[in-house]
Design a protein around this nucleic acid. Structure first.
Lengths: 205, 205, 205, 205
DNA sequence: TATGAATGAGTCTTCATTCAT
DNA sequence: TATGAATGAAGACTCATTCAT
């Protein structure tokens, strides 16, 4: 009876499918549980509630990704800015670490990014952006400090963070193959870095 | 007889408020109609259904914007590419035409971009992107034709369209004042044009 | 079609029956509405929610009763204590005003007193008692002031209020006929007044 | 093997807590059993069902109390009425026997009196009253027999039983300390006895 | 030109209970 | 001596939609 005890797993699997198709809000527990050969009540045996089930689908993936990003910016923050490089290809590492993580559970990431409305994971991309912005702010200020007559353009800074995160959500939304993704992201990153160097500061009148 | 129109208008006004606050899916017709001093039935007198009401809120604005974009790219497409310029500031015209259109009915645009989930207008940004992409494809091909050893990077092309549209949705989401918007968009456009010139083509191996 | 439009009334009637039989918490909206020849949704057309329906059953009656009691104690409070009498029969007025009010909607009172658990009307008897206590406190203090060597026994005071209110709930619970009620309550009131005069104060050691 | 009993005991302990807080109907077996470090199934191993568990919490206490009351009234009934005294203080014995019994398992009594709704122990106070009434009836008849021109006022008789039982439930509900309870009950009993002597009979027209 | 009434299918959630192991 | 899994029926509530008037 290998089939036994997998109920929880079957529930998560079905939920993933349903969330992907309909999004959190429109997904039906009835449909999920019956799809898993169980009743609604079973969901509440294994999970706290609908949101808890969503968390089971999406939580581990989110943790993995958050860890990578936090760690990355943490490291970048500790670095000495004078030795900080903004040449093309220098920042492939983050992409090369992030992309495998994103593609490890492709569907979960997609759900997290586009189907979480109504759940407690809603607006996760915005939270990512906010996280990114925190770190970039400090770096930008350091940069401005060594560029006389320049100051940080706050709007550009925020937009940059936005575009950067979006670059990844766009990638995962449009490229389902990890290898292709790793190749396609390169020019994107290059362009973003070049743009960052040239447009994050504005003239200090 | 002006009274006739008034109810319809009041309904639209209230609906706009409700859609903005709760999004299409979570908006309640009961709440909308009672907010307009009418009953649910009234909605079905004036509009086909919930989606029809949404269309009334958002449709005219969408048409105006679509027209501007279509027209703009149409013109660009007719242009002789050899005389086509990609210097900074050259493309301020589109921003300068689009932004007033976007800010003319600020709320409607916001709803269209972020609150349409569940309605037939869902994913409008993606449709805008698709529209944009059609035109950019031809231009990019012309560009490639005059650059020996180069070919169009399809992924970058698509991403560009994405970022370009997003630049506007980001703007409207974060800047509520039109004048500020006109100022903030400039470096964004500059950076995008520069990026376009340098990253839309890749080496043709 | 006299039958039309009575739906609301039918709903209230059925609800009254159901609340009486099962109490608020165990009453089922399904059962109530289907008993009225309607669907659950109909309940939500006419009332805010289950508690709202309960309020429709019980609210008017409660207001009537509260008004009588408040008014009575208000009057008693304004009276000069020296002329305040505690002879048997002197306080028949309150009973004679309250009992008709209680028997006007017998079932509603019963529900209010014994079947409100879980609703917002829960513990109404206790609230009545608290109300009563407020007024009695002042009177008892005045009484103590003119009785040297005596002080108010707080516990007895509270218990008295309790018994007094209970006298009425007991009455309505056990006597369904108003005329009988008016007769039976008399010795009860007499005994309570006599008790009040002799037991509300204790020796001030 | 002490371990065996322990689980059962833990279950009862937790159940007592839960019933006290939420009442029988709203108490959750899941919550009780998990609070006892066990699962729902365990409840059904030790007890027949939810009501059985309730009985285990409350039954022994109820039996103890019922025994005391029955015994007391039995004795009173056997007594010769002519020697039966109704002086103040004469009936302190029942209070002095009952109160310790009530306070021996304070929580259980509280649950029995106020949290049994929905269980088979619902309305236990009324059953107590009925029990009391049986005994009082006979005594009252004997009393009437020696008072020419008088007859038993049935309503007053019933009400008296009610008030008498309520005196104890009120006590336990408002006074958590046994010593205080023993003191506070005295004037209450005194008043009840005096009332009994004067109001239980009415003129026999 | 609307309303008021009502439906019906659906939502998530809770719970006592069962039973194989 | 329990557990863990699961059921099934019920709970309150929401809502877009319909339609006679």
């Amino acid at each position: 009876m290998t089939y036994e005890k997998e109920s929880r797993e079957r529930l998560i699997k079905r939920a993933k499918k349903e969330f992907l198709e309909k999004g959190f809000a429109k997904a039906s527990l009835r449909s999920i549980s019956s799809g898993a050969g169980l009743t609604t009540g079973a969901v509440y045996f294994f999970f706290k509630d609908k949101d808890g089930l969503f968390g089971a689908v999406v939580g581990p993936t989110l943790e993995r990704i958050t860890a990578i990003i936090t760690e990355h910016y943490q490291a970048e923050n500790d670095e000495d800015f004078t030795t900080y490089s903004h040449e093309k290809g220098d920042h492939d590492d983050i992409a090369e670490r992030l992309i495998p993580a994103l593609y490890e559970d492709y569907d979960a990431v997609l759900i997290l990014l586009e189907k979480a409305a109504g759940s407690s994971y809603d607006g996760i991309a915005d939270r990512m952006i906010a996280l990114t912005e925190q770190f970039y702010e400090r770096i930008a200020e350091k940069y401005a400090a060594v560029c006389p007559g320049k100051r940080v353009n706050r709007y550009m800074l925020h937009w940059f963070c936005h575009v950067q995160i979006n670059a990844f959500t766009h990638l995962i939304t449009h490229v389902s193959d990890e290898q292709t993704a790793l190749r396609e992201i390169r020019p994107v990153m290059d362009m973003l870095i070049e743009g960052w160097m040239n447009y994050i500061l504005e003239d200090d009148i």
